[in-house]
């Protein structure tokens, strides 16, 4: 379970995150939806402690997250924007590096890697250098890497960016499978269809604030609109007066 409680973060004169509170429960896929620059990535960074909040607090499975306390991040797997693989290493080596940093080793680690490569349909490219991977393959390796230590919570920053339809579909299947296994999945996106197709819970962020949250159906009802897209636009308009420049 991942919790955000009145998170706020300022960079110089820019208030990137004003007031963000939500809960991403176990066994659910929670989507963080918002226009570009709304504060999605900053919020995620506060959750996995790459940044320290100015006020408020982030919790993972009830424990407070902080930059200095590494142990809290044990039950967390993270896929940042753009996967961030080591291009000179193979898929297997990339995953192995993170496994070792989590304290895994030897045969259990190797069989875990093989298992992940199979689940994510990466078996064929497992021993190839990541340099030549497609964006979809990179994201999958990034997810496998984030899952190597079987974390309860998974955070993904815009995982579908640059993926083709087939890759997106297989990513969705993977995430649903993880959800059904009881994991807490939190992912950010600025693509409405993405969120509509996948999420159990939606948190809409605009200008650093949560402007609406709930299940997709509840959001439609509350906004009185036919599509989630209309609900999204309405929520942002209500919050900011105008969406010009945001979308």
């Amino acid at each position: 379970m991942i919790e955000a409680e009145h998170l706020a973060k300022r960079f110089g004169t820019v208030q990137a995150v004003r007031d963000v509170s939500f809960t991403a429960p176990d066994g659910r896929i929670t989507g963080l939806l918002g226009p570009n620059g709304a504060g999605k990535s900053t919020t995620l960074r506060l959750l996995y402690a790459a940044l320290q909040p100015d006020s408020g607090e982030a919790r993972i499975d009830g424990a407070r997250v902080s930059l200095a306390d590494a142990a809290v991040r044990q039950s967390l797997g993270v896929l940042p924007h753009g996967a961030g693989l080591y291009l000179h290493l193979s898929a297997r080596e990339n995953i192995r590096y993170y496994g070792r940093l989590h304290g895994l080793r030897g045969a259990p680690l190797e069989s875990r890697i093989s298992e992940l490569l199979e689940i994510l349909e990466l078996g064929e490219v497992g021993n190839r250098k990541s340099q030549g991977f497609s964006q979809g393959q990179k994201v999958k390796v990034g997810i496998a890497r984030a899952l190597v230590h079987q974390p309860r919570n998974l955070v993904l920053d815009e995982p579908t960016n640059g993926l083709d339809v087939m890759a997106i579909r297989s990513l969705r299947t993977t995430l649903r499978r993880l959800r059904d296994a009881g994991h807490c999945i939190l992912f950010s996106s600025h693509v409405m269809q993405e969120v509509a197709a996948l999420c159990d819970e939606v948190v809409i962020i605009a200008r650093g604030e949560v402007v609406a949250r709930g299940t997709p159906t509840a959001l439609l009802q509350a906004a009185g609109t036919a599509t989630l897209e209309d609900a999204f636009v309405k929520a942002i308009e209500n919050a900011a007066g105008s969406v010009e420049g945001l979308l």
């Binding site: 142990a71 991040r73 044990q74 940042p80 989590h102 990034g142």
Partner: peptide, 8 residues
């Protein structure tokens, strides 16, 4: 970024 998110 993912490296910093590790429990290390």
């Amino acid at each position: 970024e993912p490296l910093l998110a590790l429990p290390v």
